[in-house]
Simulated assay, not measured.
Amino acid sequence: MKFFLTIITISIFASLVTSDDTTITTTPLPPAPASPESQQSRIRDSRNHFDECIKELNIPDSEIKYYNTPNLPEDTPIGNCLVKCVMEKEGFFETDTGFQVEKLYKESMFSRIFRDDLSGQFLEMIKECVQSADENQNVCKRAYLGFKCLKDKNEQFSREIQKNKLN
């Protein structure tokens, strides 16, 4: 697993929000299981986006190993901009407008398979991450902090749901 797979995980299991005034309905859609072919295509696209960002940011070959990991890159200017670049290429973030709510929420598995209260809880969790990240003026840092918060909260949310399933 590589960093770019973390981006895929977020896109599949999470969604992002731009601001509090964004209205998104949480009515579950019918589950849309991804075919193995579409999953493989998504992984290929994400890998290509990651590779393009490595080139665009002129990250030397000797440093790629620090970013080509299952973990989130270090909280450094290059790591922050790598996250921003990949998220932009995936369509989840834009420099001018920030996190792309509609696209990510609609792609979110949580928005499709959970009842309204869980989907709504997830949406509120996302709003907290974005609002916190939006306090940062540096666009790369903002993308990084939002993504990190989302990743951490997504893991926590998933654990809570799994725990509740077992009880």
Rank of each mutant, 00 (worst) to 15 (best):
F92M: 15
N138F: 01
V130W: 02
G79H: 07
F92H: 15
F147L: 03
D61F: 03
Q131M: 13
T76S: 11
N136H: 09
L57N: 05
I43D: 13
C129K: 01
T76W: 00
M109N: 08
T69N: 09
F99P: 00
I126A: 14
F110R: 13
F114C: 06
Q40G: 10
E124Q: 03
E135Y: 06
K153V: 00
T95F: 06
L82M: 05
R112Y: 10
K89S: 09
S111P: 05
Q131A: 15
V130F: 01
N80W: 01
C140S: 03
S46T: 15
Y144R: 00
F114T: 11
T95L: 08
P60S: 07
F93T: 04
Y66Q: 12
G91F: 04
K65A: 11
P77H: 02
D134M: 03
C53T: 05
E90I: 08
F122H: 14
M87A: 11
P60A: 09
E56L: 11
V83Y: 02
A143H: 07
N80T: 01
V130A: 08
N80A: 09
A133C: 01
S111N: 14
E128N: 07
D45A: 15
P73Y: 10
N80G: 03
I64Y: 02
S111G: 05
S41V: 13
L118H: 08
L72W: 01
L57Q: 05
G91H: 03
K103Y: 14
Y66L: 15
V83W: 02
E56K: 12
Q100I: 14
Q40T: 12
V83N: 03
E94K: 15
F110Y: 14
M109I: 14
Q40C: 04
F114A: 07
L150C: 02
T76P: 04
F114R: 12
S132G: 04
L150I: 09
E124T: 01
S119M: 07
E56R: 10
V86E: 09
P60W: 00
F99L: 09
R44A: 10
D51G: 08
R44I: 10
L82N: 00
D51S: 15
L118C: 02
E94W: 08
V101G: 13
D45N: 14
Q131H: 10
Y67G: 06
T69S: 07
F122L: 09
V130R: 04
K141H: 12
I126R: 13
K151A: 12
S132V: 01
K89L: 11
C81Q: 02
S132T: 08
D117H: 13
Q100P: 01
P77E: 08
K55C: 03
E52G: 06
S62L: 12
L82Q: 05
L104P: 08
E107T: 11
D117Y: 10
D152P: 00
V139C: 06
Q137K: 12
S62R: 12
I54K: 06
G91S: 00
F114Y: 12
E74F: 07
E90M: 09
D116A: 14
K141V: 12
E90D: 05
F122N: 12
A143C: 07
